[in-house]
Amino acid sequence: MTAKTKVDKVLEGHKFAKRDKLIPILQEIQTADGYISKEAVSKVAQHLSVPASKIYGVATFYNQFRFKPLGKYHVTVCRGTACHVKGSLSALKIAEDALKIKAGDTTRDGLFSIGVVVCMGACGLAPVVNINGEFHAKITGTKMKNLIDTLKTSEKANAK
């Protein structure tokens, strides 16, 4: 239920908004909720009198929007030029294989999600990975695997 009220709150801030406010509204919802839910699309559709298919079309056009809730640990892999040259693609692949999801997805247990950004502005430390706001520099395949494994084991320990 909390997700719904968050969307409502965002819409309250845009009382007389027209369709040109669609992207700012979606951005605020994503900031509040972490993703764009079906309910959110439906509510925004009613609020702006824009068909849901159009909103989904606009939202999928931009890389910034997610359609699945964030995981407890959100792994962001930088895919900017410098990071790419330094091998961020293989880091991303290793993360995807380790978690058995693709970028943009969330694991079924809701623990991990993977995202991709174009540049984090820390090219000197390439390749860069960000997990829940914490930066990890000069990522190699092994480092990536270790990061995820550590998080997994600590979660398992906590679960017990």
């Binding site: 068909p51 849901a52 298919s53 159009k54 909103i55 989904y56 999928t60 056009f61």
Partner: peptide
């Protein structure tokens, strides 16, 4: 005036689909 379908995603990934790419039967 129904707009059950629209362009989804972009570039070479573009396709025509419903909101959340669900089936036509549950769309508008």
């Amino acid at each position: 005036g129904v707009s059950a379908i629209d362009f989804i995603q972009r570039g070479s990934n573009t396709f025509i689909g419903t909101a959340y790419n669900s089936g036509l039967n549950v769309s508008s």
